[in-house]
């Protein structure tokens, strides 16, 4: 019962942020204008609404993937960008921009493929490293893979045509939703939704991955296969949103931790809670990004600036028990 109240509370908060964000912006809109002015409704429904929905989807995908990956890798510090997924996706997108600058579907596909590839490399590397424990090995492998792919992005930048491709690439890499419209939302929706729904369906079973592998076996589930499945769906969701929004760090890490503070350890609550909290938080961050200054602050900058202190705060508030 108490849990239901908490779920209702965060859902109400999400709706509040959503409505507030809709009416905030450089062109201020109030209800009367909405009814009378064509420009106001044009801004609201064709510029702000798709962007807010895109932010919500971005937050949902990153947060749910973060929660699932933390369990899958038995490591509460994992987030998509730490494992090289985001840099891999960035490389895939950059590569695609170099050759097919005007075809978003190719960019998205390439981004997804390289995100998955980066994760695979990090995972294989970590099991062959002979230094430190499981957690440290994975982090080290992820750092190395991220570095290699961001190096690759650097090379692509020097090769890009400075008039056409480079601006598109730079814009993409800064990370953000400026200019994101209905089209962008629609083309990241299928893959992102596929990943999110799969993680939502697996929400309880993901808990089995937080046990010892031999215990997971003894409970009738092959941990290797389940882990692979969870990782694939998480990466699908992340790569889909990254292909539109660029590399957005920290949200995938902190949202699951906030969710655990409120809802305990069970992933059957953490995954849905992360979806709601991730959406709300990302809408808030994106609203800050587009309203705080006269220009636009890149969203990735806002999430890092706000996310890192929140993370420290969470950790300094003692254990989760």
């Amino acid at each position: 019962m108490r849990l239901l109240v908490r779920f209702l509370a965060i859902t109400a908060a999400l709706l509040g942020i959503f409505c507030l964000s809709l009416f905030l912006g450089r062109y201020s809109v109030n209800f009367q204008e909405l009814l009378s002015s064509g420009l106001a409704s044009e801004i609201l429904f064709n510029i702000r609404l798709p962007r807010i929905l895109a932010a919500a989807l971005l937050g949902m995908a990153l947060a749910a993937a973060g929660a699932a990956l933390q369990s899958a890798f038995k490591n509460p510090l994992v987030e998509p960008s730490l494992l090289g997924v985001s840099q891999g996706s960035a490389f895939g997108a950059a590569l695609a921009i170099l050759f097919f600058v005007n075809s978003p579907v190719v960019i998205e596909a390439s981004s997804t493929a390289f995100g998955l590839l980066a994760l695979l490399i990090a995972y294989l590397l970590s099991s062959s490293l002979k230094y430190g424990g499981k957690i440290l090995r994975l982090v080290l492998a992820g750092i190395a893979v991220s570095a290699i792919f961001s190096g690759g992005v650097g090379i692509i930048k020097t090769m890009a045509d400075p008039l056409n491709q480079l601006p598109a690439l730079t814009f993409w890499l800064l990370g953000g939703l400026s200019g994101a419209g209905w089209g962008d939302l629609l083309y990241m929706l299928p893959l992102a939704l596929c990943g999110i729904v799969a993680l939502l369906l697996l929400r309880w079973r993901i808990n089995l991955l937080t046990l010892r592998d031999d215990v997971t076996f003894s409970l009738g589930t092959d941990p290797g296969k389940l882990r692979a499945l969870v990782v694939i769906f998480a990466v699908l969701a992340v790569a889909a949103v990254t292909s539109v929004a660029g590399v957005i760090a920290w949200v995938g890490l902190i949202v699951p931790h906030i969710a655990r503070k409120i809802f305990g350890a069970d992933n059957s609550r953490i995954i849905p809670a992360s979806l709601i909290l991730g959406a709300g938080l990302m809408i808030a961050f994106d609203t800050v990004a587009r309203t705080l200054t006269a220009g636009e602050i890149p969203l990735g900058v806002v999430t890092s600036l706000c996310g890192a202190p929140v993370f420290l705060l969470l950790l300094s508030r003692g254990g989760e028990s």
């Binding site: 369990s71 808990n207 031999d214 215990v215 003894s218 305990g264 350890a265």
Partner: peptide
């Protein structure tokens, strides 16, 4: 299958520390 076997054989290791602080019930 693993699932069939797990309905017959159960395993208690010496030590087991779940990643997250589940309640005993969970």
């Amino acid at each position: 299958s693993l699932a069939e076997l797990s309905r017959i054989v159960a395993w208690v290791p010496q030590e087991e520390e779940p990643l997250f602080p589940y309640t005993v019930h969970e």
